[in-house]
Simulated assay, not measured.
Amino acid sequence: MSRYTVEVKSATKTDPEATIGYDRPLRTFFLQAFPDPETDEYALWLGAFLEEHPTLESITEAARAIGYEVCGLTREMMLAMIREAGPPSPPSFGERLGIVL
């Protein structure tokens, strides 16, 4: 799993410590921003489900569609995540047993 720190902005707030990356077991890109200081729950959490966002473009577009902009993605970050997402990974044990859909 890769994790990179980026900035995520909305019309009213900014999280300079947001996290974007690729979760290989779930085969999805993920984005987490705006953690609640009391519960550690995220106001923005995309990519928590199997194959939810298979491309980097799909996750940034999904964030934009709900009013968030991802800033600070470098070329190196993007290439590293795309490389990690490139090779197909086999179904997990849970998937093979029919537990994970």
Rank of each mutant, 00 (worst) to 15 (best):
Y68Q: 06
E7W: 02
E57G: 12
D15S: 00
S2E: 09
E38R: 13
D36H: 12
F93D: 15
R27N: 10
S2N: 13
D23G: 03
F30K: 01
A62I: 01
M77I: 10
G72D: 01
F34Q: 08
A80E: 15
Y4K: 10
E57F: 10
D15V: 05
V70A: 01
R3P: 02
G47A: 06
D40S: 11
M77K: 02
P88V: 14
R27Q: 13
I20K: 00
K9W: 10
A11Y: 00
D23V: 01
S89A: 14
L73S: 01
Q32F: 07
F30A: 04
F49R: 14
V100C: 07
Y22M: 01
I20L: 00
M1W: 10
R64M: 09
S92Y: 05
A63I: 00
E38S: 12
E76C: 03
E52Y: 04
P91I: 09
R3G: 13
L26F: 13
R24E: 11
L31F: 03
K13Q: 14
P90H: 13
T28L: 00
S10Y: 07
D40F: 12
T5Y: 02
E41F: 08
T14V: 15
E61D: 13
E57N: 13
G72A: 09
D15M: 06
L56R: 06
L97P: 06
L31H: 06
Y68S: 04
V70D: 03
A62S: 12
A48N: 10
L26R: 14
E41R: 12
E95K: 00
P88Q: 14
A63K: 02
I20V: 07
G72H: 06
F93P: 11
G21W: 02
P37F: 07
T5P: 03
D40W: 12
A65F: 01
D23K: 02
M81D: 04
D40R: 14
K9E: 13
L50W: 12
A62R: 09
T60L: 09
A80I: 06
I99N: 08
I59F: 04
M81F: 04
R24N: 09
P35G: 03
S10V: 02
E7L: 05
P88T: 14
V70G: 02
P87Y: 09
D40L: 12
A43Q: 15
R83A: 13
T14W: 06
T74K: 11
G94P: 10
V8S: 02
D15H: 02
